[in-house]
């Protein structure tokens, strides 16, 4: 009896996660999460993407520990040094350590991505669900507004907003957010339209659920997975747009180590010192690739309709 107890929990957990006899809602949710995790781990590219994102988060959170130098400390005597044991990615025109700047730059990239997603997700969801659920003129007007925003390439529109608001990190976030919500709204509307006509909504309505309750308790949870996947895939685009704004001098201002701005600053020296543009640009490429891979994996998982 006592020996049984000591080994029971461990065997019990995997049994609890894989048995067909599900006894509680929590167990069902845990099983879904578990099998989702197993499925995700079976997609090596998505796992690589997730690991890179994890690395990005770690280096942003623990930048002072991960970096080897002060990101803004100048040392003109060591300007434009090639990669070496002391400066892993070389130094820039002011003698700053490029590796350390890229590590600190992860903070800026992550800030932009998170802030834009937090702003864009709820706005896009709300506009899209409202348009899809209410229909009629509300739908027509909201979708017309969405179309107008979609009729600009996102970088050009973000550029216009950033130019009007003035350069800076906060304004870049606002500018990108203003251009990034329409695709989310479109998606949420499409999802809502298919959900709206399903039987369980009719049943809930017959039972007497209010429109607000229908919208937030029944439609919202079903819209969420595809919206989250879309947000994740959009993050790659957000990073590229942010880097483009930074490259044009409209993002975070010097001396802050924004990757796009670093690439732009390195332009004048790139023919003699290849590392000044190669390193920050590679960081942009790798991180946006990671978000694309992760988003693809998440889509295969959460949205079986899209799987190839």
């Amino acid at each position: 009896m006592s020996t049984d107890l000591s080994s029971a929990p461990r065997r019990g957990l995997s049994h609890w996660l894989s048995t067909d006899e599900i006894t509680s809602g929590r167990q069902a949710a845990a099983q879904r999460a578990y099998w989702g995790f197993v499925g995700f781990m079976g997609n090596p590219l998505a796992v690589i993407g997730a690991l890179i994102i994890l690395l990005l988060i770690i280096s942003a959170a623990f930048a002072p520990l991960v970096a080897t130098h002060d990101p803004i400390a100048q040392n003109l005597r060591a300007a434009l040094q090639p990669p070496s044991a002391a400066n892993w990615f070389g130094t820039d025109e002011l003698g700053r350590d490029i590796y350390s700047r890229i590590v600190y730059g992860a903070r800026i990239t992550l800030t932009i991505v998170v802030l834009v997603s937090v702003i864009v997700g709820p706005i896009g969801l709300f506009v899209g669900m409202l348009a899809g659920f209410v229909g009629g003129w509300t739908d027509r007007i909201l979708m017309r507004i969405t179309d107008i925003f979609l009729s600009f390439p996102s970088l050009v529109l973000a550029l216009a907003f950033a130019a009007a608001l003035g350069p800076g990190l906060e304004n870049a976030v606002i500018a990108i957010a203003l251009t990034a919500w329409p695709p989310i709204a479109r998606l949420a509307r499409a999802e809502t339209l298919t959900i709206r006509s399903s039987d369980f909504i009719a049943a809930a309505r017959l039972v007497g659920a209010s429109r607000l309750r229908l919208l937030f308790r029944h439609v919202l949870p079903l819209c969420l997975p595809s919206v989250i996947v879309r947000l994740c895939l959009n993050m790659a685009g957000i990073i590229l747009t942010a880097a483009g704004l930074g490259f044009l001098g409209l993002g975070a201002q010097p001396p802050s180590p924004e990757w796009g701005a670093m690439t732009s600053a390195g332009r004048r020296f790139m023919l003699d010192s290849w590392w000044v543009v190669t390193m920050p640009g590679s960081a942009i490429l790798i991180v946006s690739l990671a978000f694309n891979l992760f988003g693809d994996g998440l889509r295969d998982l959460l949205d079986p309709r899209h799987s190839k």
Partner: peptide, 22 residues
């Protein structure tokens, strides 16, 4: 296609200049 979706185009331009011009 995934790589070219993820590459910052301005950076690719600079790398192109380094490799094919310089």
């Amino acid at each position: 296609t995934l790589i070219s979706y993820s590459t910052p185009v301005f950076w690719l331009g600079l790398i192109g200049l380094i490799v094919f011009y310089a």
